[in-house]
Amino acid sequence: MSLDKINIRNYILILIVIAAAATRFFHLDSFTSWFNFTPIGAIAMFGGSYYKSRTKAYLIPLIILFCSDLILNLTVYYNIDGKFDAAVWTYLSFMLMVTVGRYMKKVNVWTVIAGSFACVFIHWIVSDISVVMMTGSMYPRTFAGYLLALQNAIPWERNLLVSTLVYSLVMFGGFEYAKSKFPALQLNSTAELQHS
């Protein structure tokens, strides 16, 4: 295989997403005020923004999130209970966050900040459905119970917002800087279509 046929851009994008996902393994449980400081929002938005292939935009971040979730459950939380009702809502919110990135036509500070707020809002309203719906929930399965769950989730979502802004700054800023230094990372529509 010649170097002309290798899409370096895609490999760099995958490495950035994997590196961000790897930070999920830094164990911050002793710092409870930092709970939910995670790169998932930035990963979703980044994948949606930079992968022009719809399949890659959704699948690559989703597979990396799933693998990191699996590793975390096996090594940190020691909990694989086979209950996927909560995961369905979390992954649905993740897919919607990828969609936010897909709608970012231009990457700049303002679109990344707006996208970060949108991603966290989506996570907040979608993933908390599972908190109310799961068996043994501390919230009644009513709209009032859902509103109470949303209210109680604010500290976690605040941390997710901060982390999404920080990770987005590093991921988007780093890739944009790399693009300015290495022309091979610029989007080449012909190469991207061939490798989609």
Rank of each mutant, 00 (worst) to 15 (best):
L160W: 02
V76Q: 11
F182S: 04
V132R: 12
A44P: 09
Y177S: 10
L28M: 14
F143C: 11
A149P: 13
C119W: 04
G101Y: 07
F94T: 08
S68C: 09
C119E: 04
L72R: 03
I122N: 06
L72W: 08
F46L: 08
F117W: 03
W89C: 10
F121K: 02
Q151M: 13
Y50S: 08
F182H: 08
T142V: 10
L3F: 11
A22M: 14
V132M: 15
S196W: 07
F172W: 01
E157G: 03
Y91D: 08
N152D: 13
I122Y: 04
G41L: 03
A191P: 01
D4G: 00
A19C: 13
F182K: 05
D85W: 13
F26K: 03
A20Y: 07
Y50A: 04
V88C: 07
D81I: 01
I60N: 05
T55H: 08
N10K: 14
Q194H: 10
N10Y: 15
T142A: 02
K179A: 09
N10L: 09
G115L: 08
P183N: 15
W156N: 11
A184R: 11
Y167Q: 09
P140I: 00
Y77D: 13
V98A: 12
L59F: 14
W89I: 10
G48Q: 01
I6S: 06
A118E: 03
A118P: 03
V17S: 11
M138V: 03
T23D: 04
T32Q: 12
F37N: 00
S196I: 08
L169P: 00
K181G: 04
I125C: 03
I8C: 00
Y146R: 11
I80E: 06
D128N: 15
N79T: 10
L160R: 05
M1I: 14
G174M: 13
S68K: 05
I8S: 05
T23W: 05
H123V: 00
I18Y: 02
T32F: 04
H195G: 01
G47P: 10
S130K: 06
L160A: 12
R102K: 14
I40R: 02
P61V: 08
M104N: 11
D29N: 13
T38V: 09
L28F: 12
L185N: 13
A149Q: 09
L70S: 07
S189L: 14
W89H: 14
N152Q: 12
G47R: 11
G48R: 11
L15A: 15
K83L: 14
E176A: 09
L74C: 12
V109S: 12
